[in-house]
Computed example of a mutant assay.
Amino acid sequence: MNRGFTLIELVLSLALLSMALMLVFYIFSFSYYNYVRFNEEIEAQQNLRYAMHRIISEIKRVNDADKVLVKDGGKKIVLLKYDNNTPEVDIYYVPHEKVINMHSRANGVELAHGVEDFHVNLDGDKLVMYIKVRNKVLSSTIKLMYNNGD
C-alpha cells in the first residue's frame, strides 16, 4: 500500500493552486483599481460643485452688474466693493497649475484643482460661467441686478 503523492500529483495541484491564486489576485487588483478611479471621479465632481457654489455665492453677494468685472479673456472675475469700487474679491484660473483661486483682502484660497478649463462671459446683466474637470462640465448662468444708487 502506497501512501503519499506522486511528483505529477504535486505539480498539478500546485499549478491549480497558483492559477486560483492568480485569479483571486486579478479580481482584487481590478476591484482596487476601480475603487481608486471611482473615488477620484467623486472627488473631482465634489471639487467642481464646491467651486461653482462658492463662486456663485460670492457673485450673488455683490449682485450688482456694475460691480462684477470679467478680465483676462474670461479667466478672471473681479468683484468690486460697493462703496468705493476697489477690488474686494478676485477669482481667477491658473491654467499651468490647473487651479481656480479666490483672493480677497483677508486671504487667498484654492477653490478647485485639476481644472481643465474655466471661462466666464458677462453679457449685460447675464454672467455665464463654466468649469471643466475630468471631462465633466458644469455651467451656470447668473442674472445680475443693476443698482442705480436708489
Rank of each mutant, 00 (worst) to 15 (best):
K136G: 00
Y50C: 04
E97R: 14
D72Q: 13
V120W: 02
K98Y: 06
S139C: 01
L48H: 05
L69P: 02
I142L: 07
L127H: 00
G108A: 12
S140A: 15
N107Y: 13
N2K: 13
N148D: 14
E9H: 07
I55A: 02
H96M: 04
D125M: 13
P95W: 02
D123M: 09
F28Q: 07
I91D: 03
F28D: 05
V94M: 05
S31W: 02
E58Q: 15
Y32F: 13
I77T: 06
S140E: 15
V109G: 01
Y92M: 11
R37V: 07
F28R: 08
V120G: 02
T141N: 03
F118R: 12
G149Y: 02
I42F: 01
H119Q: 10
H96L: 06
R54P: 01
M19W: 09
L10Q: 01
N107P: 00
Y130S: 14
N101H: 11
Q45E: 13
E43I: 04
V36L: 08
K81N: 14
S57E: 15
S31T: 08
L79R: 00
Q45A: 08
L69M: 12
Y130C: 00
V11E: 02
F28E: 06
M102L: 13
L69G: 08
S18Y: 03
Y50F: 10
F38W: 10
V109N: 09
L16Y: 05
A51K: 03
G74R: 09
D150P: 01
H119M: 11
